[in-house]
Design a protein around this nucleic acid. Structure first.
Lengths: 267, 267
DNA sequence: ATTGACTCTCCTGTAAGGTCAGATGTTATA
DNA sequence: TATAACATCTGACCTTACAGGAGAGTCAAT
């Protein structure tokens, strides 16, 4: 039997961690002295601990690990591992994108000497938004559920014999923004006016084009809103995006293009 | 002036976040109604918020961002950004390594059908550790400070006119393990016995070879300790590693080789 | 005057432990 | 055997960057 300190060194985890795992029931010592409370571990528990540490490095939470340890079905376990690999892949891509962005930021500074105001120089235009007939789906949704909702929309295309125009977008109805759940309508443009859920009439808008991934889209929003305030307009309706070039056109998020529209009126 | 809800939507952050930033003093609203407590933001604060969000995506903590905003020296700021880029690079490498490991794990399962016991099949040998004359540096150090301590050791090589043998390692004196601070002696082997800080005499050891990065080194430890217990030996001293192939030999951590030694005696 | 939307403060909770404090247990040495 | 030195225990509070909710106050329109 090993005292907690020895076990800790062998497994390369802290004593506190062992206390914690005992508390949450992830890895209980093989024996606990009933009078002193001292924890004693078996040699065979080293393997179990190593397995836990391995899963932790794979990015699982302790909660998930606990469930995985009780899983008897190996196929299910394999599935979980595969999913985790995909998740890590996405993280990898995300971090790559951020590194590129940061490098771009640094380069801009080195050329211009201006670091605080690193911005994309959005060009704002006043123009009528395009008239669109759309299939729409308005609901409370999270930003990363877009794909799901678009999926259900595109399923309707063959069923209802409509012809997509390729103009797809989303309109944001909430005043308040929330990443997990906002009142959003995703829509795809179609040719057949009579089959549309909604006919979006053209209206006067301030718009700009955002190039790049969606994580910096809010900067485009900011640029448009600033422009509106500075030029004597006011916001006259819920803003929307049109996804001109997206992941289906080009894999690298740096080449995506999104049009951001804010309906406006003169004050 | 914008109410908090509008500001929230434009900047794509939640109201809760704005409350939080106000509380910690990262971004205070331009005006607060003295009677109602309502927060009002200026259009110009959108830019500031976007800048904050950008730095957050770069991986800075709110604390760091706060300090960066008060930094007047652009050169310093640039340095911080460069450091952060290096940090992200390291994270990127780390995650790449984990993905590879996970893929290997999955492949092993697909071949063998055994998932819980994915282990490296360490082969444990009993043999005398090599006799070594070393320059050593024993201190309380964190695991990621090894490089620093090796640096000071290698500086002594030309000064003291000694000849490195290429056998470098570290010995772990603590019973209890702690990632940030443990009692560790890093050492480099040299030819000149009379100039050595310590002469390590050969002793009977259980040893194994660990192939791969250091994050799974604890599994080798576990394998050796299990073997010792199962074969009627006991641990007779502080264990140590010898870094046979490391980052200076080959860039890919999968090809590194580490020998793990535990001094033992028969029970 | 009421409704509904918006906002306020305050409190608690999260994940995975870290950092004390104060008490108690175990072991080696004198 | 006394004592020092070290190991371990419990319990309480701390960390990050907010989220969620309760209960109360505010604002504009009907």
């Amino acid at each position: 039997m090993l005292q907690i300190g020895e076990f800790s060194r062998i497994c390369q985890v802290s004593v506190k961690t062992l206390h914690h795992y005992d508390k949450i029931g992830l890895l209980a010592p093989a024996e606990v002295d009933r009078f002193t409370g001292y924890r004693y571990y078996q040699i065979s528990q080293i393997d179990e601990m190593n397995y836990i540490q391995r899963l932790k490095r794979y990015g699982f939470s302790l909660d998930e690990i606990q469930r995985m340890l009780t899983l008897s079905d190996d196929k299910e376990l394999l599935n979980v591992l595969r999913q985790q690999k995909e998740k890590l892949r996405r993280e990898q891509q995300e971090i790559t994108a951020v590194v590129n962005e940061l490098q771009a930021h640094i380069s801009v500074y080195e050329r211009t000497g201006d670091i605080m105001t690193y911005q994309k120089g959005y060009v704002i235009e006043v123009k009528n938004s395009p008239a669109m007939n759309v299939l729409g789906n308005r609901a409370m949704m999270g930003v990363d559920e877009f794909g799901k909702y678009y999926g259900t929309l595109f399923e309707r295309v063959p069923k209802e014999r409509v012809t997509p125009t390729g103009l797809n977008g989303a309109r944001y109805y909430d005043e308040e923004f929330n990443h997990e759940s906002s009142d959003i309508e995703v829509f795809i443009g179609i040719k057949e006016k009579e089959k549309a859920d909604t006919v979006i009439e053209p209206c006067e808008c301030a718009m700009t084009i955002h190039r790049g991934g969606y994580s910096t889209l809010s900067e485009a929003y900011g640029a448009v809103v600033s422009w509106i305030a500075e030029n004597g307009y006011e916001i006259a309706g819920a803003p929307f995006d049109l996804y001109i070039k997206n992941q289906f056109d080009t894999p690298s998020s740096e080449d995506w293009e999104t049009e951001v529209y804010f309906p406006i009126r003169k004050k």
